[in-house]
Simulated assay, not measured.
Amino acid sequence: MPDQPPPASHPHPLATVPCHDPYVLPVADGATGAEYPAPEGTGVLAWWSPDLLTWGSPRLVFTVPRDSWADPAAAPWAPEVHEWDGRYVLATTLHHPGDTLPPVRQRGTRLTLSHADHDRYTFAPSRRGTVLAVADDPSGPFELLDPTASHTPRDFMALDGTLTRDEHGRPWLVYAHERVQIINGTIEAVPLEEELRPAGEPVHLFRASEDSWFARPGAVVPSTQALAPYVTDGPQLMRLPGGGLGMLWASYRTEPGFESGEYVETQAISRSGSLLGPWEQSEVLVAGNAGHGMLFRRRRSSNDATNDDDAPDTLVLHRGMNTPRVRAEIYAVTLTPSGVELGERLA
């Protein structure tokens, strides 16, 4: 049977909480002991924890508006909340499956599909994009900045957008462009105004095919619709010691034993420190059907306040991609000039 959320009672051990695309926001006071009624509607749930090991009842913090461009019956993907200039900003991916999009001929790519590939894979791009919503409190309710459009380009099938500031302090929305539309998935970025409205055309950062590890020697590319080597998921940015810029992202690689390909967490490095790169691809960080991670700094006590000068020391991601049981895992990490180094598993 597919995962079902646990009953609405407190506390829930981490291992019982179904979790795709986790995102942790450290806050001074979480409503960990509160009991919330069962959520209604389609939207984003927030869970609260004092220790990352036990979690309070989920609370509905955002509902897809019925008068927005998105289908209110289609569940949001990859929500994350950023503390931003005194407010909180939710970035999440919405969908309109009935609004079909044309395929995009990707400039500069050398990847093509054979006739057999075209027969095996189904490409039916539809409208999908990341939106931004704001609230005065992380418990919501969050309201869309623009109910009429996504922050990613309307004609792009885009997902997993994340907020960041570049080396000059300018805000950007970094996102993944779906391989369903362009075959060779990409990571791209849209410049934003300070008010978080789109302020220009998207900029290409890199392609999924630029990694060096997607096929192990002797591995056979799985004949499934995953089209494993060309996926880009879950970009997350972090400033590295020495001034470089790192990016976590997830993809698939061909590996025996994984019918749809093995989901992995990897990273890319911009040694110049510029969001625009050039980006160098690193080796796989976490394997075994795990990925879509993000970094944060753990609170060790009520006096351990998180601030912009504190380097992230914790990685959360999910394991169990394409299985009935998907759960969060938490690791200690260290940031180095060459990227993230993985430490012990914490949960």
Rank of each mutant, 00 (worst) to 15 (best):
H95Q: 13
S274D: 11
P222D: 15
G108A: 10
S57H: 09
T323S: 11
G140Y: 02
R120K: 03
T232Y: 04
W213D: 13
L90S: 07
M294Y: 04
V264L: 09
A133M: 13
D85Y: 14
S301T: 12
V340R: 05
P50W: 02
L237E: 04
H318W: 00
A8E: 07
R345Y: 01
A219R: 13
Y121C: 00
D146G: 06
R197L: 06
H20G: 01
G30I: 03
T92M: 13
P76E: 10
R87F: 05
D166P: 08
D155H: 08
D71H: 12
N303A: 07
V340W: 01
L145C: 10
A228L: 14
E341Y: 03
R271A: 15
W47V: 13
D99G: 07
P6V: 00
P65Q: 14
G41T: 08
P217H: 13
F296D: 04
R207C: 07
S209N: 15
E194F: 01
P5M: 00
L145H: 09
R253F: 09
E188Y: 02
E262I: 13
P103K: 06
S49Y: 04
A91N: 07
A28Y: 05
P22H: 02
E262V: 13
R300W: 07
P147G: 07
V286S: 04
L276W: 10
P22G: 06
P97A: 02
R345N: 02
S270A: 15
V134F: 14
T54K: 11
G218Y: 12
L90Y: 07
R59T: 08
A228K: 08
L163N: 02
W84D: 08
G339C: 07
T148P: 05
P97I: 12
E283W: 10
A70M: 12
Y121E: 02
L315R: 06
R325W: 04
A28D: 14
W279Q: 09
T148S: 12
V333G: 00
A124K: 15
E344C: 01
P11M: 00
L94N: 00
E167I: 09
G108T: 11
P222E: 15
T92S: 12
Y36Q: 09
L342V: 00
S114D: 05
D304Q: 11
Y36M: 10
A305P: 00
R105A: 15
P171F: 07
L317K: 01
V286Y: 11
A347I: 06
G169S: 09
P198Q: 12
L25C: 02
R165G: 11
P171C: 03
L159W: 11
A189F: 03
P72E: 14
A176E: 10
P141T: 03
P76V: 05
D146Y: 03
T306H: 01
A133G: 12
R299S: 03
P11H: 01
W249F: 09
A290D: 08
V190P: 02
V24G: 00
R299T: 03
V24Y: 11
R110A: 13
L192S: 08
D3P: 00
L60Q: 15
R120W: 06
L94H: 06
P191H: 14
L295W: 04
Y23Q: 07
S57D: 11
G339K: 08
P141A: 01
S150M: 02
R297N: 11
A199D: 08
A70Q: 11
H10P: 01
D29F: 10
N303P: 00
S126T: 14
